[in-house]
Design a protein around this nucleic acid. Structure first.
Lengths: 333, 333
DNA sequence: GGCGTGCCCTAGAACGTTCTAGAGTCGAAC
DNA sequence: GTTCGACTCTAGAACGTTCTAGGGCACGCC
């Protein structure tokens, strides 16, 4: 039971059905060139022997592997959602996915190296932190699609959300509710922090609220949000847009501890629509990225490259949408 | 750029270094049988050509694949933690991991099938929902290790947490704080719900609190917890142990909405130490599973099986530990 | 009856590795 | 001066598949 007897191969099935190996291959691939009768017989034998094709040998021989390598980060609810979408998209066009995770003790370089050895035909990287130069080198070897980050490098394809627009949505929503004194807590040195910050500034100006413009340095984590809360409390705005959901919850915790109620005293908007932001407990108004569209486009782009298509523009930018929940309301007064 | 020129193979390196293919193979595998000088030269050439071994061909030829297939569920913070541990453990003993995800639209059967085609040497399943019979069939084909679930089937190895003991810890903690009227909201038909429920009952009896024993039907999700809250409020205990963290947050939301404060009016203990339970906002006292130990043992067991060892006991049970946070305190009065 | 033309099937090479068996060289021991 | 062993290296088969080229065979057409 442990691992003793060899798994059946094409040859075993062929022998059992008294046909050639090639014919069994034809039947298994559902390729033309076999009569209905033989086809049925071979399939029956294969089923009986519990034959499973060896994808390694298959790919080895047939050269082009219909295999997409995906690098994702563990502990990233967002990546999980994306994986779901990528599986769907890949299946739809007959590609397989092979995953490689980035963990606290396994870096992106290692994850990529593993996939390269599996000889996948293209790489899809979720929020890669690799330096641009390295991404470029990689893209010289095989098609590379980066998601959720912009890469100033011609060889790398990009599929990402229009983060600037995401902040426009957030600010518009708050302004519509009657807010004017709206602050922004940014993501510090994190990817796409700059773009979100700029989106906030542009939106404020568009509404003629440059006098209220105020950016506080934050970060990715809950504690960054908590720290920013301290600074905000000194001169209280009526609303805040946060870099992401995690820092938003940090902020919320401090605000509530200081006796303020949300959204009556202050409105808060997050970013990402992380799964926990849906929890009744947190119930955070936030900006959601269009996961399914992003996944579909990323896979499509990867496959176009594999097929050698010349793609005009490298960067695909998807509009986000606002999810209104319980942390936003009219300003006090 | 796109995918044009073939990647270098052993033959390319061999030609460039004017040695045989076999010798390059020896050098790449770091096997004995090459002089230091040649070794250095071959390595230099390999590096220059940017040679990457083709793991498919390698595994195909060498029969035994040092490859463990892991089936995990997306949107399961817990599984992410486990993956981290599994990667560590596998790397330590020279095995590779290949992942296959279960998503809302990709079931466990599909995930397993994919791994079987990759010819991995053993399967590690995180919280498998497959029927026992199917697991048994699978285990007839290759070693199978199930994590976080018990399987009444001799062929399948199991590595899991002692869930009964987890509830002992929770109840002991509450009793030590002075609670007597402690209820339990179970997981309904979910895996290991029965064991946790029984653990609660045993612990209550051990403390001579059978008079207070009370089990409410719950479930996996937040709404299950919220529903249970309604029932609990009718006859209020001073403390509740919940099936998991997610349902605990559902319960907390309703309790607070009803104007109760936690832990002053009522104490709550979750289960799993999910990442969100750490959020300052939620700050849930909970039972944590020993992830690293579980991962290490699962990999070790899989490898033992691959090597054909006869293992005495199939089931490894790890003790959990209690993480005390802000949702537990002395009872009111 | 010769000759295409489909259709079903098969033999054998190929993919990039690893492995087995053995060939060559050199120095030391008899 | 032969024989042996150790060491370095090589040729070629093998892994399980796909692919190319072609072999029979029946049928229809001249």
């Amino acid at each position: 039971m442990s691992g003793g007897e060899r798994r059946p191969t094409l040859a075993d099935v062929a022998a059992e059905a008294s046909v050639s190996v090639a014919l069994v291959s034809i039947v298994m691939r559902d390729a033309p060139g076999a009569s209905a009768a033989t086809r049925a017989r071979v399939l029956e034998v294969a089923r009986r022997l519990d034959y499973q094709p060896d994808s390694r040998a298959r790919l080895l021989r047939s050269g082009q592997s219909r295999l997409l390598g995906v690098v994702f980060g563990v502990q990233h609810p967002f990546h999980d959602d994306l994986l779901t979408g990528l599986y769907d998209a890949a299946e739809k066009i007959g590609y397989e996915l092979t995953l490689s995770a980035v963990t606290p003790r396994r870096d992106e370089r290692t994850a990529v190296a593993g996939l390269l050895q599996d000889r996948c035909a293209a790489l899809v990287l979720l929020g890669p932190q690799l330096p641009t130069a390295e991404l470029a080198t990689l893209a010289g070897r095989l098609p590379v699609v980066a998601m959720m980050r912009t890469v100033r490098q011609r060889q790398v394809d990009v599929v990402r959300t229009d983060d600037g627009r995401g902040l426009h949505l957030a600010v518009d929503h708050l302004v519509a509710l009657g807010h004017r004194d709206i602050a922004h807590v940014d993501g510090g040195r994190w990817l796409s922090s700059a773009e979100r910050r700029q989106g906030y500034r542009d939106a404020m100006r568009r509404h003629g609220l440059e006098a209220y413009e105020r950016v506080v340095t934050g970060g990715f984590g809950e504690d960054d949000g908590a720290r920013a809360a301290g600074e905000l409390l000194r001169h209280r705005p009526t609303a805040v847009t946060m870099f992401n959901d995690l820092s938003a919850t940090g902020l919320l915790t401090v605000l509530r501890r200081e006796g303020m109620t949300v959204p009556e005293d202050i409105s808060v908007v997050g970013y990402d629509d992380s799964s926990f932001s849906r929890l009744g407990h947190i119930d955070l108004t936030t900006v959601a990225q269009d996961i399914d569209t992003m996944a579909t486009l990323a896979v499509a782009r990867a496959v176009e490259r594999i097929d050698g298509a010349q793609v005009a523009h490298r960067e695909v930018v998807i509009p986000p949408r606002l999810v209104v929940r319980g942390t936003t309301g009219p300003p006090p007064d």
